[in-house]
Design a protein around this nucleic acid. Structure first.
Lengths: 343, 343
DNA sequence: AAGGCTTACGCAATCGATTGCGTCTTCTTT
DNA sequence: AAAGAAGACGCAATCGATTGCGTAAGCCTT
């Protein structure tokens, strides 16, 4: 009867119990200055009446929305969607809402949508940069208001920020090393936009591995694409395979291009992995679908999302806005499949 | 100097212009009772000072959060992530935020997280049901508060709700018909949980096609799985292929199981499509990766998301809570690839 | 020129929860 | 038993925007 249409508020509870709304509020928040019996009574009634706090009112008053904003390039990419899935899980366990936004790998859209996220008073921001983004000034909006920012995977080239990512250098080193140990002598590298540290690091790890094993580093088979798409992958593969001195192995900075490489090579009658061993990066689901199955570097997407939330939460709980920037490095491992297994 | 740390409010603008906050508010919202010059002046200053409305305050007052809630099974599935991508695009264009939640195909979690969405005062809800969900009473929370609900893809068996989906019957009919026209005489069907109408309809469309072409409907090769996973797909394929009278075609209700079917069949030396033609459903990216490429029913995920937002918005704009439930049917088409092309 | 309209704007309450400060009990201490 | 301390709770302002109602000024009509 009472709750015909209206939601229950602390005023309703207060009236019923003949106490003040302030007391109800404090009781529900376990404030120390409220008596035990009062707390019990309030909580009991709240449960009975199905009281649900109005988070809008609370957020307005406290200026904390208890919402995490996510800014990613494209939601519908295997890695990203798993990342988001991890974020959503962890956030909801911490009682936080998650609001998402896409940059479509476009800096302007990234900036615009960041404003929208800011306007909705998010408590913390988790970002994986747009491919294009080189300038990071549009994030000042958040740092100036001391809203925690956690960068994930595609992180900026700055030191004083919190980051959750993998050791791309090491992962790339290991992937390349794997190819070398399978007998490859001349390994090509398909990389992404070099201003994105993840791609730069993967290239550096690759180079380091070659040097470590005394192989020649040949720039003509190290190719970077701004968007390492399927089409680019095909184009690049065609390019390196038509060289006088084609590679006998390829380390691709993502699986999409690696799949293209496999498809193109198969079409040209190049035997995989005997004549050409291939390894990708991300361990997308397609790795197990393509024939031959694609070796890849496993990238813990869900865990990264969870770790990012963990960082954000701990930053929120710190009183000091002293920005104790942290850096979480997650483990990767090479998943060996038929595309690179020669022995 | 002035905006050292605080955001600009309508009070700041009002003070500067020597008018009242109410006038500022109305001016910004283009209220008719505000003079032209006043509006101009207010908007000009607002822009100059970078005023950004506090959506929390606004939402609290109006009880409309301008946020769309999404409830899906798993974010990291090709179809779902594309759906969300479409929703996000359309929502942001309409100035709406998007908050997401996953049910993990579990009714209890669905219910729990729906509460959380409700608590955050979403303006509208877009849902694709958890696989388990049979009882829809946990959605009453929203309908009772006349919060628009739009069901997408996995829709409930109710008539008085707004739905955006495809014609599963027709799509299944066409997929099956395609196999028949390729010469299949004995077509198996791998279906999902039958209490989900999408799977029931796909099965019915399949049966209708068989009947239309005078083929025998044999229950022993119509198999339903609660979760049509890769593992189930393998298991089912093994089952039907080991029959005395194995099928010469399979219509799978999703691509995941179809891929398993291809892999299992290949492994057993069954020739695709000559001895066994296969077609899936969803047109996931893996269709083009698997060898042979998998025919499938293209499912317009992004467009469905956009259509769902469109519905939600129009429901929000209607004054009358008379729930003019609508039903949006999107087009599908069969994408023929090598897994089923015999001619 | 006076009454009636329209236009343009301000007052103050409101949404629901939070919180600094003040007050009244009740318990403890000597 | 008196006084100080601690415990328990209420008052009222506050967060920022919205909105019903009221009022003053300007315009037109006859």
């Amino acid at each position: 009867m009472e709750e015909k249409k209206k939601d229950i508020t602390i005023y309703d509870l207060a009236q019923e119990l003949n106490i003040s709304p302030s007391t109800v509020s404090r009781a529900l928040n376990d404030h120390h200055s409220i008596g035990k019996k009062t707390k019990k009574a309030v909580k009991k009634l709240a449960k009975e009446w199905g009281y649900r706090p109005n988070t809008l009112a609370s957020s307005l008053r406290t200026n904390r929305s208890n919402t995490i904003g996510i800014m990613v390039s494209w939601i519908n990419r295997p890695f990203i969607s798993s990342l988001i899935s991890g974020i959503e899980n962890a956030a909801r366990e911490s009682g936080l809402n998650v609001i998402i936004s896409q940059s479509h790998d476009n800096s302007d859209l990234e900036k615009e949508n960041l404003q929208a996220l800011y306007d909705s008073r998010i408590s913390a921001l988790i970002v994986s940069l747009a491919m294009e983004t080189i300038d990071y000034s549009h994030f000042d909006l958040f740092s100036d208001s001391s809203i925690p920012i956690v960068f994930v995977d595609r992180i900026p080239l700055m030191n004083d920020v919190t980051k959750v990512h993998i050791n791309n250098f090491k992962a790339a080193f290991e992937a390349t090393e794997h190819l070398i140990k399978q007998g490859c002598k001349r390994i090509a590298h398909f990389g992404g936009a070099r201003h994105q540290s993840i791609y730069e690091d993967r290239m550096l790890g690759y180079v380091a591995a070659l040097k470590r094993y005394n192989l020649v580093v040949d720039d003509s088979i190290i190719i970077h694409a701004n968007y390492l798409s399927a089409e680019e992958g095909t184009r690049i593969t065609e390019k390196v395979l038509s060289l006088d001195n084609p590679p006998d192995g390829i380390f691709c900075a993502n699986d999409t291009s690696a799949v293209s490489a496999i498809q193109y090579a198969k079409q040209k009658g190049v035997k995989i992995p005997e004549e050409l061993a291939i390894i990708g990066f991300n361990d997308d689901p397609i790795c197990e679908i393509i024939d031959p199955p694609l070796s890849s570097v496993h990238h813990p997407a869900v865990e990264m999302g969870e770790a990012a939330v963990k960082q954000a939460v701990s930053m929120l709980n710190e009183e000091a806005p002293g920005e104790p920037t942290e850096r979480v490095l997650l483990d990767t491992h090479v998943v060996v499949r038929a595309s690179s297994k020669r022995k």
